[in-house]
Each structure stands twice: as structure tokens, then as C-alpha cells.
Design a protein around this nucleic acid. Structure first.
Lengths: 103, 103
DNA sequence: GCAATAAGTCAGGAATTTATGACTACTACA
DNA sequence: TGTAGTAGTCATAAATTCCTGACTTATTGC
């Protein structure tokens, strides 16, 4: 039987890493906005009232590190930087939707 | 069309509440253990090395408040208290499994 | 009565996260 | 040259979360 085992005796919870990466004051909202469209730093600041540069910067860095977002430099006139969902990020979308269903 | 909309313009992320409730140093692990079997305070302390009474107590209270666990008093010789998964808690299990798949 | 176990609570401090405001680096425009 | 926009960093402070050890309440066994 190939049952996925949630009750295994491993040291820590396998979902813990991802849950931790998604926890934080602004990370769920950042992820949600990233699903809607590519993110830019300055507009993100405007889109999330109450947030601040420092924390958003750190959050983006962490979401990038765990592979949910990727930084893309757009070499154009004003030189933009965008944060895009990765494939891993997209695979998280249905899980997000299910979470919303439970709420 | 009844498409579930992840990109809506509502003020905050709908999944944020549940994600916040599941965030914290020991909560994912507590939830995982609760899936395996009913929890008792003293054994939980032993099962999660490095944790402490205060934080576990708070975590259990919070998981109870959001309706994932319910406290059950077992009126028997030594009078036990158990924490059981609720229906809402059980509905979260497949989402947990998916999260593990993404990690 | 006295010690032990279960299930906590409480006060205080340590550690981690988040916020604020000043500052930097680069480009563009007038 | 000076002002404006984008994308940040840095030091510091405030807020939140977590940990420690002492203490409480209730029940059982000796």
C-alpha cells in the first residue's frame, strides 16, 4: 500500500518548513498578490497598507529562497525588478484555495 | 461562472487567518500528532523535545479556539484531558498532505 | 497526612519579528 | 546641476513570541 503517511515518527513535521515560510505578517498577502500578477517593490508597498520596506524586502527574499518566487530584472528604460511565481509557487495555489475553503 | 477567485481585491488574504493559526514554533507538529491520535498534555510535552508547558498550553488553546481541536474531559479514575481533532481539523488533513508534497 | 502525577497558570526575561526614519545607488528628466 | 523615481540597506526601537522556574489545584496511592 502506498498510503501517504501523516502520522510517521520522523523528528519534525514535514509541512512545517513550508508553513513557516508562509508565516509572517505579510507573506500570505504577498503570495496572494503574486498569484494575481508579477510584483514590483514600490507598488507592493502601496498595495499593502500598513506594511513597510524592510519587512516586505525580507519577506520577498524569503519567498525567493524557498523557491516560491523568482526575481526577474527587466532591462528597460527605468530598469524594473519583478517577482514572479515559480512552478513550485504555482503548485501551491490549489492548496491556498483549499485553505480558503476551510476558513 | 463560479470560479474560485484567488486574485480578488478584498482587504486581506482569506487564507491568512488559518495560516496564522497554524504558524508558531510547535503548532504544525501538534496538529500532526493530533492527526495520529488524541493528545494529552503531559505526553505531548514528552513527545515534543525542546518545547515547554507555557507555549504548548497556549498553542493548544489557540488550536482549540479556531476549531481544529476540541478539549475532551475523560471522567475516569485519574481524570484525563484529551485534545481531539474536530471535523474542521480533519478537513485540514488533505491540505497538510499536499503541503508535504510540495516541500 | 504526605508524596506523586496530571494539567495547567503566573511573572519575568530572552529571543525573534516587525516598524521607523535616514541613507545609498542608479537612471531619467529639465 | 538639481529633483524625482525605483529598489533597496542600515541602525535602532518597539512589539510579539517563546522560555524558565516557581507555584496552584485536583486526584490517587501509601
Amino acid at each position: 500500500m502506498t498510503t501517504t503517511n501523516l502520522t510517521q515518527d520522523t523528528e519534525t513535521c514535514p509541512a512545517q518548513g513550508l508553513l513557516k515560510s508562509l508565516s509572517g505578517k505579510w507573506k500570505p498577502e504577498i503570495f496572494r498578490l503574486a498569484v494575481a500578477s508579477a510584483l514590483r517593490f514600490s507598488s507592493l508597498l502601496r498595495q499593502i497598507p500598513g506594511s513597510n520596506k524592510q519587512t516586505l524586502s525580507l519577506a520577498l527574499k524569503e519567498l525567493e529562497e524557498i523557491g516560491l518566487l523568482q526575481k526577474v530584472v527587466i532591462k528597460q528604460k527605468p530598469l524594473h525588478i519583478e517577482y514572479h511565481l515559480t512552478a513550485k509557487g504555482r503548485s501551491l495555489v490549489p492548496v491556498f484555495l483549499q485553505l480558503e475553503g476551510i476558513v
